[in-house]
């Protein structure tokens, strides 16, 4: 009965997923890189003295926070503002500026605003130079000593050439808390008659455990009917998270990053 009900609920749920309203993407103007570059140079020479070379403000306001920039659509507001100036606020007019020059400045400003809008991204190609602030020697000492890393890992074994395998930021993340098949939790499930099944834990909640067993079969068990003995290779990493200083992390990263 419970199974039938569960299937019914899943069917209803799945049916709904197919008809989800598609949320509209946030507007992401893509500016022509050549125009942005031209605009940057023009902005720097004509506007940077007051608004800052990157348009984030100096003597005059930060334009990335400006309602005029944020509400502008292809220069419809910025164009007249540049051409006419804002005499009441002390901004001169740029009457001699040509249309293509204004268009380039507009492209640059939208590009800068877009960078700010997406400043909450730490991409896979996050630069190594930003991450590499630690001391590799100190990292090696931590690896072999206080960190206890060498108890499970070897730089000539499982970690050999580890820096080639991951981008720098991925290496730092995996170093602190690895993910992937090779670090999955495993369990041995013992039935009441003594039969044992061992395998990778692929589902676990309060009521059931599901194993991909060593023999290639998926088996699930009611948690209250079996004995479960778990082995989690990541436990030591979780314990370490409370012990690390950030300097330890940066040193250890510098050491692992040297393992090309």
């Amino acid at each position: 009965m419970r199974l039938i009900f569960g299937l019914l609920v899943m069917a209803v749920w799945a049916a709904g997923q197919g008809h989800q309203a598609t949320p509209l993407p946030r507007q992401q103007p893509t500016e022509d890189p050549a125009a942005v570059e031209r605009g940057q140079a023009l902005f720097k020479s004509s506007c940077g003295f007051c608004h800052g070379d990157d348009a984030t403000g100096a003597r005059a306001p930060d334009l990335l926070r400006s309602p005029v920039v944020l509400r502008d659509d292809g220069g419809n507001l910025l164009g007249p503002t540049i051409r006419n100036g804002r005499p009441d606020k002390g901004m001169p007019s740029f009457t001699t500026m040509k249309d293509d020059q204004i268009a380039a400045i507009v492209a640059f400003l939208h590009h800068q605003a877009n960078l700010a809008l997406h400043s909450n991204r730490v991409a896979r190609d996050y630069p190594l130079a930003r991450l590499l602030t630690g001391n590799a020697q100190a990292g090696k000492a931590y690896f072999d000593g206080a960190g206890g890393c060498s108890g499970c890992h070897s730089v000539t074994g499982d970690l050999a050439h580890i820096a080639k395998k991951y981008s720098p930021i991925e290496l730092q993340q995996h170093m602190v808390y690895p993910s992937g098949n090779d670090v999955s939790k495993t369990a041995t499930v013992t039935l009441k008659d003594g039969t044992e099944y061992r395998g990778k834990v692929v589902h676990q909640d309060e009521f059931n455990i599901g194993l991909m067993c060593d023999d290639g079969w998926y088996r699930s068990f009611r948690a209250d009917e079996v004995k479960i003995s778990e082995k989690d290779p990541l436990e030591a990493h979780r314990e370490l998270m409370r012990k690390y200083t950030d300097a330890d992390i940066h040193n250890l990263f510098a050491y692992l990053e040297s393992l090309k």
């Binding site: 984030t56 400043s119 909450n120 930003r130 993340q173």
Partner: peptide, 24 residues
Amino acid sequence: LWSIFYMTAEGKPEGWAGRDRNLW
């Protein structure tokens, strides 16, 4: 919930100016 927090801003910070990546 453990996470590593990165500050991405190079010039004047605007918007989020950083982000964290979840670990566990």
